[in-house]
Structure formats: structure tokens, C-alpha cells
Lab assay of single mutants.
Amino acid sequence: IGSLMYASIFGNVSAIIQRLYSGTARYHTQMLRVREFIRFHQIPNPLRQRLEEYFQHAWSYTNGIDMNAVLKGFPECLQADICLHLNRSLLQHCKPFRGATKGCLRALAMKFKTTHAPPGDTLVHAGDLLTALYFISRGSIEILRGDVVVAILGKNDIFGEPLNLYARPGKSNGDVRALTYCDLHKIHRDDLLEVLDMYPEFSDHFWSSLEITFNLRDTNMIPGSPGSTELEGGFSRQRKRKLSFRRRTDKDTEQPGEVSALGPGRAGAGPSSRGRPGGPWGESPSSGPSSPESSEDEGPGRSSSPLRLVPFSSPRPPGEPPGGEPLMEDCEKSSDTCNPLSGAFSGVSNIFSFWGDSRGRQYQELPRCPAPTPSLLNIPLSSPGRRPRGDVESRLDALQRQLNRLETRLSADMATVLQLLQRQMTLVPPAYSAVTTPGPGPTSTSPLLPVSPLPTLTLDSLSQVSQFMACEELPPGAPELPQEGPTRRLSLPGQLGALTSQPLHRHGSDPG
């Protein structure tokens, strides 16, 4: 009997000691992992102490058991019943959930998450997105703005933001810190809205009876308010094209079509300037034949640059190039080494500058006005007194259609001029006259002087055409309008007829 009692007592005591040691061994194993994590990542002392304290409290609170892992091991129907039991206190005593059906309560219970916070733990920081609604079931918390405590909340209090009033989550206007050990039930806004969409009859009752104890939403960050730039940057990543407008005076608003859609830094370009900076079609017209890549860069430059609305530039004389043409100036200075066709295309550029300027006046029909002061630039669209967005969009579309028509007509005119030049060069190729044979009589004449090349004649003739079109064909006081194609086609051969009437002889060394 004594040996039996000794064996039973010894066996029970050893089993008890073994169970104690097993729990202690698990605790030390998990604690060792936490300390190894702290050492590996070199976490500083204040945060390291918070980690160790939280682990110790969580171990004593749950005995080292992962409740979520245990809950996920059950089937979904059983999980709903378990969640309904775990959140029964909240669902029974909170006013917004009263009167809900059994199915609605089960769906809500599945969406709730339980959070346990030790003292000093910050649940929400200032500036964080308010993605959830919090219900306090135990403990107390404090809300701070800077170093000032603005509120202390306790059991059955609710904090967050009214989700039904805002389409997008706002930002917190303060820090939420736990004063004691707290148990909180939180539900994400997407989950709550999903359940309320499934039960629309409960939705009206819920929003009407929901009383948020403390609204954390920062009202200064609401979209459309003066301080909402940061919020707009976070939620409006896919922005449309940006529009900046110059201020319109009362006198300017009476004149229709007073602005032109141009790229940034293009205030001095012609009315047909689009795409790359520098001139019509993204580059100076005089350098068009020598740089074919300008047409390839036109599309990307047009689509990537934001639109700006600026006044037209001052008018340019008909014979003056659009500006920024070092290529043609070098050719004029060193005409001995340049291609003979460069002079002809220089005359073509003069005609283009004249036609572009006159067509700009035809479509816009307003006098040039000086540029406004820099303080009046970049007025935002949302400022008071601005035109409605639809009106601005319609004006932009009208300007775009005008620019497209202008570009089409300029292309047709350019093709006409090039065809005339090619026809003239085919009839009378460039050549130098040879020395004529002296006559049989004693009164022999001296050799004839060489005839100037055709490109120079073409430049003079085209300059005469531009001056003739600019000065004589337009009646005084009438708006400057571009001439039609047949009129220009008839004027060019008439001007060139006198020049080509002389018999030109080919030089023996000319390969053409």
C-alpha cells in the first residue's frame, strides 16, 4: 500500500511539474524568437521594450494561443456562430445594431475584428487614413492633437468618421493612444458598406441611429477645401490634362476667341504652333527640309505637354522668318557652300510665315494684346468667377478644330508651292551661260556676264508674291485673308516669265 501511494503521488507530481515546464519551455522559446528578432533588426531601446511588454501581456492574456488560427480551423457556418458569440456584447448593447435580422448580425459579426491594445500603444496616428470604424468594449483611450489631450473615450464609445457622408476615406486629425488595456472591435469601411448593401432595409436605420462619439476626420483635408492638395495627390493619381488660365478682364471677355491653345513656353509662336517648341509643326519652317525628324516628334510632343491658354504674339512682318533660324542665316552668309535649293526654301518659309499670320487673323479676328503681368498667370479653374468647365471645354474643342483646319490648309498650300517650284525647275534647270562666239564683223562684242542661278530668282519672285499679296490685293481696312490656291498659281508664272525669257546656255562643266 505504501509503495502504491508513493507511486501515485510521485507520478502525479511529476506530471504536474512536467506540464509546468512544458508551458515555461514554450514561453521561453517564443521569447527567444522575439529577442532574436530584436537583435537581428537592431531595434532601439524604447521600441524594444514595448515589443517585450506586449509579448508578455499577450502570452498571459491568451496563454500563447493564436485565436485567429484556431477560429480559421472551423467551417464557415461554425465561424459565424463563434463570431456572433464573441461580439454578442457589442451587437446587443450598441444602439445602431438593434433591430437587425439574424442574418445581418451574422454577416456583421464575420466582418468585425477584435484588437487588444496595451497602455501607451498608439492605435491611430495623425494623418493616417481612416479605413475603419472603432467600437470600444473595454478600457479607455485618449485622443491628442500635438501634445494636447482633446478627448478621453471609454466603454461603448465610437470613434472614426461617418462613412455615409464621404465617398473616400479621410485623414485623422489626431493621435489615438490607449490609456489602459483596451479591447476594441473594428470593422473596415469596405466590409461595412458591403453588408449594408446586402441589407438595404437595415442601412437607413443604421446610419440614422449611429452616433460617433469623436469624429477623427480632418475637415481641412476634404477635397475642394484650401488644404486638400495632399489628399488630392493621394487619391487622384490618374489626373486628366491640367489647364491653367490667364485672368480675363471685362474688356477681354467681350471679345470671342481671344486665346489660343499652345504648349508651355510657346507664347511667341504662331497660331498653328503645336507639339515641339520653336515654330509651326514643332520646328522652324525654314529647317523643315533639312530635319525630317521633326514630323516624327510632333505626335509625342503634342500628347505629353499640358495645355496652356495664352494670348497671341505680336504680328510678324511678311518677309521675316518666324524666328530662331540660325540654319538659314548661316546659309545666307556662306552662300557659296550651301545647297542652291536652300534659297528657294527660304522664300517658301517667308510665304508660310505670311500665310500663317494672315490665317491666324482670319480665324481669330481680334487685335493683338500685350501679355498680362506675371502675377495674373496660372489662375486655377476652381477659383470664384471662372467660367463653367463645359464652356471652357467647348472653347478648347473649337480652337482645336480651327487649328486642324489651319494645319490642313497650310499643308495644301505648301504642296502647291512645291509643285510650282518643281515645275519651274523642270522647265528651266539651273545653269550658267557659256561665252558666246564673236560675230564675223570687226565690231565684236565682249563675252556675256554669267546669269544668276535660278534659286536666287525664285527667292526674289516669291518675296514679290508675298509683298504683292500682303499690300496690293487686300483693300484698305479689310481683314488680311489668305489668297486662294488658283490665284497664287496664276501669279507665280507671271512673275517668273520675264526672268526666264532670256536664252540660257548650259555650261560645259555643268553635270545637269
Results as ranks from 00 to 15, higher is better:
Gly127Gln: 03
Ala132Val: 05
Ala132Gly: 12
Leu133Met: 07
Tyr134Pro: 01
Ser137Pro: 02
Arg138Val: 08
Ile141Cys: 15
Glu142Ile: 05
Ile143Gln: 01
Leu144Val: 10
Val148His: 08
Val149Arg: 07
Val150Met: 11
Ala151Phe: 01
Leu153Gln: 01
Leu153Ile: 05
Asn156Val: 03
Phe159Arg: 01
Gly160Asn: 01
Glu161Arg: 02
Pro162Phe: 03
Pro162His: 08
Leu163Asp: 03
Tyr166His: 12
Tyr166Glu: 12
Ala167Arg: 10
Arg168Glu: 10
Arg168Asn: 14
Pro169Gly: 03
Asn173His: 12
Asn173Pro: 02
Val176Ile: 03
Val176Asn: 03
Ala178Thr: 12
Ala178His: 01
Leu179Arg: 09
Thr180Leu: 02
Tyr181Gly: 07
Ile187Met: 03
Ile187Lys: 01
Arg189Tyr: 11
Leu193His: 11
Leu196Phe: 10
Pro200Met: 01
Pro200Phe: 01
Glu201Gly: 06
Phe202Asn: 06
Phe202Glu: 14
Ser203Cys: 13
Ser203Arg: 10
Ser203Thr: 08
His205Gln: 09
His205Cys: 10
His205Leu: 07
Trp207Gly: 03
Leu210Val: 09
Ile212Gly: 03
Asn215Gln: 01
Thr219Arg: 11
Asn220His: 08
Met221Lys: 09
Ile222Cys: 10
Pro223Val: 12
Pro223Asp: 10
Pro223Glu: 09
Pro223His: 09
Ser225Asn: 12
Pro226Asn: 06
Gly227Ile: 10
Ser228Phe: 12
Thr229Met: 07
Glu230Thr: 06
Leu231Asp: 13
Leu231Ile: 14
Leu231Gly: 09
Glu232Asp: 13
Gly234Pro: 11
Gly234Trp: 06
Ser236Cys: 06
Ser236Lys: 12
Gln238Asn: 10
Lys240Met: 12
Arg241Phe: 07
Arg241Thr: 11
Lys242Phe: 07
Ser244His: 11
Phe245Val: 10
Arg246Asp: 15
Arg247Trp: 13
Thr249Phe: 09
Asp250Cys: 11
Thr253Gly: 13
Glu254Phe: 10
Glu254Gly: 08
Gln255Arg: 12
Pro256Ile: 14
Gly257Ile: 13
Glu258Tyr: 07
Val259Asn: 13
Val259Met: 11
Ser260Tyr: 08
Ala261Lys: 09
Gly263Tyr: 10
Pro264Cys: 10
Ala267Thr: 12
Ala269Trp: 08
Pro271Tyr: 07
Ser272Phe: 14
Arg274Asn: 14
Gly282Tyr: 05
Ser284Gly: 10
Ser284Arg: 06
Pro285Tyr: 12
Ser286Leu: 11
Ser287Cys: 13
Ser287Tyr: 15
Gly288Glu: 10
Pro289Cys: 13
Arg302Asn: 15
Arg302Leu: 09
Arg302Gly: 11
Ser305Ala: 14
Pro306His: 09
Arg308Asp: 06
Leu309Gln: 12
Pro311Ser: 15
Ser313Cys: 10
Ser313Glu: 09
Pro317Asn: 13
Glu320Cys: 10
Glu320His: 15
Gly324Glu: 13
Pro326Val: 15
Pro326Phe: 13
Leu327Lys: 15
Glu329Lys: 10
Glu332Ser: 08
Lys333Cys: 07
Lys333Arg: 13
Ser335Tyr: 10
Asp336Leu: 06
Asp336Asn: 05
Asn339Ser: 09
Leu341Pro: 10
Ser342Met: 11
Ala344Cys: 03
Phe345Thr: 13
Ser346Thr: 13
Gly347Ile: 11
Val348Ser: 06
Asn350Arg: 12
Asn350Met: 03
Gly356Trp: 04
Asp357Met: 15
Ser358His: 03
Tyr363Glu: 08
Gln364Asp: 04
Leu366Val: 12
Ala371His: 12
Pro374Phe: 09
Ser375Phe: 07
Leu377Val: 11
Ile379Trp: 04
Pro380Val: 03
Ser383Glu: 09
Arg386His: 11
Arg386Ala: 08
Arg386Leu: 14
Arg387Cys: 13
Arg395Tyr: 05
Arg395Phe: 08
Leu399Lys: 01
Gln402Leu: 13
Asn404Lys: 05
Arg405Glu: 03
Thr408Val: 12
Ala412Gly: 07
Ala415Ser: 11
Leu418Cys: 04
Leu418Phe: 07
Gln419Tyr: 04
Leu420Glu: 05
Leu420Asp: 04
Leu421Ile: 08
Gln422Lys: 05
Val428Thr: 08
Pro430His: 11
Ala431Tyr: 12
Tyr432Glu: 11
Ala434Cys: 12
Val435Ala: 12
Val435Tyr: 09
Pro438Ile: 11
Gly439Ile: 07
Pro440Gln: 09
Gly441Arg: 10
Gly441Thr: 06
Pro442Cys: 08
Pro442Ile: 05
Ser444Gln: 11
Ser444Pro: 11
Thr445Ala: 08
Leu449Trp: 15
Val451Cys: 06
Pro453Val: 11
Thr456Val: 09
Leu457Gln: 09
Leu457Cys: 09
Thr458Arg: 11
Asp460Ser: 05
Asp460Trp: 04
Ser461Ile: 09
Leu462Pro: 10
Ser463Tyr: 09
Val465Ser: 07
Val465Tyr: 04
Gln467Ala: 08
Met469Gly: 05
Glu472Thr: 06
Glu473Val: 12
Glu473Ser: 11
Leu474Gln: 07
Gly477Ser: 08
Pro479Lys: 15
Leu481Gln: 07
Pro482Cys: 10
Gln483Thr: 10
Gly494Leu: 12
Leu499Ala: 11
Pro503Gln: 12
Pro503Tyr: 14
Pro503Lys: 12
Pro503Phe: 11
Arg506Trp: 04
Gly508Glu: 11
Ser509Ala: 09
Pro511Gln: 09
